[in-house]
Design a protein around this nucleic acid. Structure first.
Length: 585
RNA sequence: GCCCACGUAGCUCAGCCGGUAGAGCACGUUCUUGGUAAGAACGGGGUCAUGGGUUCGAGUCCCAUCGUGGGCUCCA
């Protein structure tokens, strides 16, 4: 019998339970469709899935029936029985299951093959499983969704039907998980984008293209201004380059060879092909090549908020996170081999500083090394990879090595940022390029007068402004810190007769550099407060007879805390300090 | 791109077995001028994504297109 004490078991148990639940689900599905072909059914984060080849498409209604059948099986308290079989026995046992046969054939020779059976269902499986279905809590399982999935993730192979489910120790844990899913939904940047009037996407005007509304524009302006200021402080220059370039450019850079699947068809201008840019680098290189360079000029750090367009398959577009047009916070660092290590460390530190400024402390690094099809001399790869590694170690940043995961033109560091919900987002990339300096014949004059090839590093710290905005929205659940919020203070007159004084206060705030407005609607105070709360406006300055008389304001925070009355300069002092600190209220 | 689902007012959604469109919010007008999360009444607003087809008749059924959502190497 399942008991409460099991709730104390560790995560490993949960994985076993989920994997076992997947087997139970497969049995339930086979009850309904005896001719079904089964594929694989692992435990995953927060749940499990199983892939099937079925005679007809599943509907949401089927999930209820499958779930009920699962509960019935679970309540039968069937033991999971493990059996070792020979390859021949396995092939015989699964002769009607082509996907299983394929798996068996790929198992290494000599390795023992195990099968697990519960009730009437037998599956090829390395295990482990719970001892009996009694260890699965029938009240703590739920099937969540149906999805298509290619056999082995390969789009050339059959499309299977995948059922996702979740399983927990207790009903309470299941409910807590479902509640968490709801919270994530409430934080969804697409939903908040509409509620807070931040941005929109217009299908009739093109998928994956973002329209920034005034409120989104205000936030973007703050981000960009901060970004520019910090870049100048950190020794960067800022460039602006065109949005299109002739085929010559993309031929020379190599993009037409290795990147054309992401590029849009050319447009013809005066009979010549022009391509809209998927990257900014070739343009920066043209600027570099517009004059000769001495080693004394280096390093050059050239940044651009460059808007690029890339073709993404329609099925992968997703709000602000996966789009077809976006603005990278791009930069190229061009330097001598001697300088490279210092430059990498510098850019890594800069990146971490930027992330902390926006309220993200939890960063993890991935070092991607030389792939098989690499271009460039091995020695350069070696030096570049080592400089990346040393920078990570110098900063004591936890990192994993992705062996062979670099681009063919250079090794890289990717940073993954963890948000408040514990989700990881890949945003920052610091990438060597041994390809383009070669192709564009970039050079500098060394101390001995010889022309040498400089190192070039691409980097994007925030990634793209669109994706970064999506992350910001979800991280803060729309409750942006004061320095970023589009409306830092809303002045709320209680009655119409308070509007003139409210306007005066608004002016004072605007003059002091705050983003402020007045709610002059004919709503009652309660409604005005509610509307401001829904917009998560940090400061609500209420003005009635008392305040108009005393020439002060009554300050309410979006946390519902009421600070009472104070003079405007006093409020401004507080707001300024909070804005400066980039945190607090 | 592929699989499944979905597309009805600005937003969130009802709309039965085919019989000529409905709610709440938002918006407008009027009344109300109020002390910290929704005051009231009235009103305007939809070629039901687009294009075909079936039918006496199509948001409702069929096909195509566009778009949106969830998935598509967590590997027995």
């Amino acid at each position: 019998m399942w008991r409460q004490s099991m709730a104390e078991h560790n995560q490993g148990d949960l994985e076993v339970i989920r994997h076992s639940a997947a087997h139970v689900m497969a049995e339930a599905v086979l009850q309904m469709f005896p001719e079904a072909k089964i594929a694989i059914g692992p435990a995953i984060e927060d749940g499990f899935y199983y892939d099937f080849d079925l005679p007809r498409p599943l509907t949401l209604d089927d999930l209820g029936e499958i779930e009920e059948r699962m509960r019935a099986i679970i309540r039968g308290h069937h033991p999971f029985i493990c059996e070792q079989v020979t390859r021949e026995q396995a092939l015989e046992r699964f002769r009607d299951q082509p996907y299983k046969l394929e798996l068996i054939q790929e198992l290494p020779e000599g390795e023992p093959i195990s099968i697990y059976r519960q009730n009437a269902f037998t599956d090829l499986c390395r295990g482990p499983h719970v001892a009996s279905t009694a260890e699965i809590n029938p009240e703590a399982i739920k099937l969540l969704s149906i999805a298509g999935a290619y056999w082995r993730g390969d789009e050339k192979r059959p499309m299977l039907q995948r059922i996702y489910g979740t399983a927990w120790h207790t009903k309470e844990e299941l409910e807590a998980y479902l509640k968490r899913l709801q919270e994530m939904e409430a934080r969804d940047h697409r939903r908040l984008g509409r509620q807070l009037d931040l941005f929109s996407i217009h299908e009739e005007a093109g998928a994956g293209l973002i329209y920034w509304h005034p409120n989104g524009g205000r936030i973007r302006t703050v981000v960009e201004d901060f970004w520019r200021k910090e870049h100048y402080k950190n020794g960067y220059e800022i460039l602006y380059t065109p949005h299109i370039g002739r085929a010559w450019l993309w031929d020379t850079s190599g993009h037409l060879d290795f990147y054309s699947q992401y590029m849009y068809s050319p447009m013809s201008i005066d009979g010549l092909d022009y391509y809209i840019k998927p990257m900014n680098c070739p343009f920066h290189i043209l600027i570099y090549n517009s004059q000769t360079h001495s080693y004394r000029d280096l390093p050059l750090r050239w940044a651009e908020l460059g808007t690029v367009y890339r073709y993404e398959r329609s099925g992968v577009l997703h709000g602000l996170l996966r789009v077809r047009g976006f603005t990278q916070d791009d930069a190229h660092i061009i330097c001598t081999p001697d300088q490279i290590e210092g430059e990498i460390l510098r850019v890594l530190r800069f990146s971490l500083y930027m992330w902390r400024s926006f309220g993200f402390e939890d960063v993890k690094a991935y070092l991607a090394t030389r792939p098989a099809d690499a271009v460039g001399e091995a020695a350069r790869w070696e030096q570049a990879t080592e400089s990346l590694r040393r920078a990570l170690e110098e900063e004591q940043l936890p990192y994993e090595v992705d062996e062979g995961g670099g681009a063919f033109y250079g090794p890289k560091i990717d940073l993954k940022i963890r948000d408040v919900m514990g989700r990881e987002w890949q945003m920052t990339t610091i990438q060597f390029d041994f390809n383009e300096p070669e192709r564009f014949n970039m050079t500098y004059a060394a101390e001995d007068g010889t022309l040498r090839r400089p190192y070039m590093v691409h980097r994007a710290l925030l990634g793209s402004l669109e994706r970064f905005f999506g992350l910001l929205i979800e991280h803060y659940g729309g409750a942006f810190p004061v320095w970023l919020h589009p409306v830092q203070a809303r002045v709320i007159p209680i009655a119409d007769r308070h509007i003139p004084y409210a306007r005066e206060v608004e002016q004072e705030l605007l003059q002091a550099g705050l983003r402020a407005d007045v709610d002059a609607s004919s709503e009652r105070l309660n409604a005005k407060i509610r509307n401001a709360q829904l917009l998560k406006i940090p400061y609500m300055l209420v003005i009635g007879d008392r305040e108009a008389e005393a020439r002060d304001v009554s300050v309410r925070l979006r946390t519902m805390e009421n600070l009472g009355s104070m003079m405007v300069p006093e409020f401004l002092a507080r707001a300024r300090q909070v804005i400066e600190a980039k945190r607090g209220l």
